[in-house]
């Protein structure tokens, strides 16, 4: 199953690009890709209303919620992973409910991994969304209201188009961050090939096996993906202003 492991004895060979790709753990690659896609989609659905609330609510204790959302940025992934593991386990109401519904626990499953990743990547979606929502000129929102257009439609017709760069930034960062996470995955999902073994775990495994060439191949792919995504983010944040200059 793990192709790279077979060739791990030939480390001294200087491998070409094709060989490097051959040594990739493609199963881990697709698993990671699938995870990032699902987490990004969920965070888009969850992050837009959350960000809207953060950007426009006048609730005085809002800052507490903002701090809570930002926690994953500063906490060690193991802390978050630990509590998610507890919350998903047999002893928690959520874990028991899931077990009664599906017959197995959430811990060490792909679904559990999705839940952990959504929490872990939350600030990477919500913060750019909220920042770009609040950057939309409030006078445009007043104009929309005066023209008789309700808040929900104003959101889709004015706020979202004018926050486009922030939305792409949030999506790209969420995707890249989910691909790159390690600690939460290891805590919540463990290391089950085809179920919870993502690329970053795979690199850790390969290094443990002294399979440096395989680790190198996987690491290079991750670097390439991250670089491409960040380039998209920065190029969009640059060019949006030249497409839609403010009057």
């Amino acid at each position: 199953m793990n192709i790279a492991a077979v060739t791990s004895q030939n480390e001294s060979d200087s491998p070409g690009a094709i060989t490097l790709l051959w040594r990739m753990d493609w199963q881990a690659f697709w698993l990671t890709f699938r995870l990032a896609l699902i987490v990004t989609a969920l965070l888009l659905a969850l992050g837009l209303p959350l960000a809207y609330w953060i950007a426009f609510s006048r609730w005085r204790w809002k800052f507490l919620f903002e701090a809570f959302v930002a926690l994953p940025i500063v906490l060690p992934p193991t802390v978050l992973g630990f509590y998610v593991l507890i919350a998903l386990g047999e002893r928690s109401p959520l874990g028991r409910w899931w077990e009664s519904m599906t017959g197995h626990t959430l811990a060490f499953t792909f679904e559990g991994l999705v839940i952990g990743s959504v929490l872990y990547s939350l600030p990477f979606a919500v913060q750019p969304f909220a920042a770009s929502f609040s950057a939309v000129d409030s006078r445009l929102l007043n104009a929309s209201a005066v023209l008789g257009v309700a808040k929900f439609r104003t959101f889709w017709r004015v706020i979202v188009p004018l926050s486009f760069s922030g939305l792409v930034t949030g999506v790209a960062l969420t995707f890249a961050h989910t691909i790159g996470e390690f600690g939460v995955v290891l805590m919540v999902g463990g290391n089950i090939p085809g179920v919870t073994r993502t690329l970053s775990i795979n690199i850790f495994d390969q290094v443990q096996d002294l399979n440096y060439a395989g680790a190198n191949a996987t690491a290079l792919v991750l670097i390439a993906i991250a670089f491409v995504l960040l380039s998209i983010v920065y190029s969009l944040n640059r060019s949006v202003w030249s497409i839609w200059p403010r009057p």
Binding site: R139, G148, P247
Partner: peptide, 20 residues
Amino acid sequence: LSTTERNIGYVFQDLALFPH
């Protein structure tokens, strides 16, 4: 009544046209 229900025409000082 909320602003959206009032049917008042209001041209702002800075016009507030939708740039996009």
